[in-house]
Simulated scan of single mutants.
Amino acid sequence: MFLHPDAQFYIDTLPTLSAAEQVNFGKDPAAPGVVASHSALDTEITGVPVRVYTPVSVAVEAALPCLIYFHGGGWAGGTLDMIDATVRSLVTGLPIIAISVDYRLAPAHPFPAAIDDAFAVVSAVLEGTSGLEIDTSRVAIGGDSAGGNLAAVTAQQLREHAVASAIVPALAHQVLIFPVTDVSTTDTPSYLQFGADCYLTKEAMEHYIEQYADGHDRTDPRLSPLLAPDLSGLPPTTIVYGECDVLAHQIRAYGQALLEAGNSVTVTEFMGQIHAFINLAGISSDARAARRFIRAELEAALC
């Protein structure tokens, strides 16, 4: 196992970092225009707190495409401020509205609270009831880690809802960044190989899963989207993850399963990288490259 030097530096430095310093690690010093590209407003959609990023240099004469994003944090942590730099970077310079969702967290609000919040926000956007000028035919969802899990599950739920109602427009794209796709087991090769010394540990994941699942059947596809019996008819998908992640095995498996079900899938692995690396743009060239790649995927899908 060989960690990327940026990843090793972060792991070695992490015990000395304050919360503010960790947030600063997410900011790309080479991209000062990221903040200026979009204005931000904290508000609510269907009662769920969100932060809406609106392009400042675009004359809003017509509805704009939209990215709805769910932060990581093991379904029990994470904030809109912690993910702010990442969300901004994915839409900077693009005529895309971004919505960052502050869903309810475990253990106070275990499964399915987060999924309910995610589905409510995305449904409101697609149905045109969010109060925002959004082109409902050009909506993407995305998220990292636990947020990637919420995005994957929401995409599956929307497909089922669309089949039943024939009303809700289809998603144009989904971006899954080192997503949790299977909480039913931590007995995989990547958990064995990377579960102790690569930032996110097997022990930590088991704790997060226990808090969130709260006794629910962990093979339920709303917890483990990889285990859904039918993965056909899902939106075009971009998957990004690091090689040295306890989730790597299940992430690759989800990408393969989506492909075998007839979906359009692009899977990109960053060698030597750890879980959550995309949030380290202040120190990681791979994080900056991943953000540029995802931004290009979103531009191609939505603009």
Score class of each variant (00 low, 15 high):
residue 168 V to H: 01
residue 206 E to F: 02
residue 195 G to D: 06
residue 220 D to G: 07
residue 239 I to M: 14
residue 107 P to R: 12
residue 243 E to M: 03
residue 103 Y to C: 02
residue 128 G to K: 07
residue 10 Y to C: 05
residue 300 A to W: 04
residue 276 A to V: 15
residue 137 S to N: 07
residue 240 V to C: 09
residue 93 G to C: 14
residue 169 P to E: 02
residue 113 A to W: 02
residue 2 F to H: 13
residue 130 S to F: 04
residue 295 R to L: 04
residue 99 I to W: 00
residue 74 G to S: 00
residue 216 H to T: 14
residue 13 T to L: 15
residue 233 G to N: 13
residue 34 V to D: 15
residue 105 L to R: 15
residue 210 E to W: 06
residue 155 A to K: 01
residue 93 G to V: 03
residue 53 Y to P: 08
residue 212 Y to T: 01
residue 2 F to K: 09
residue 82 M to S: 13
residue 214 D to C: 15
residue 192 L to H: 14
residue 62 A to P: 00
residue 185 T to M: 05
residue 203 E to L: 08
residue 272 G to R: 03
residue 302 L to R: 09
residue 89 S to V: 08
residue 164 A to V: 10
residue 32 P to S: 05
residue 296 A to P: 07
residue 119 F to P: 01
residue 131 G to F: 03
residue 299 E to K: 09
residue 278 I to E: 06
residue 29 P to E: 08
residue 258 L to V: 12
residue 214 D to P: 06
residue 253 A to I: 02
residue 303 C to E: 12
residue 176 L to Y: 02
residue 212 Y to M: 01
residue 105 L to H: 05
residue 17 L to P: 11
residue 61 E to L: 03
residue 45 I to F: 07
residue 284 S to L: 07
residue 178 F to C: 13
residue 115 I to Q: 14
residue 167 I to T: 06
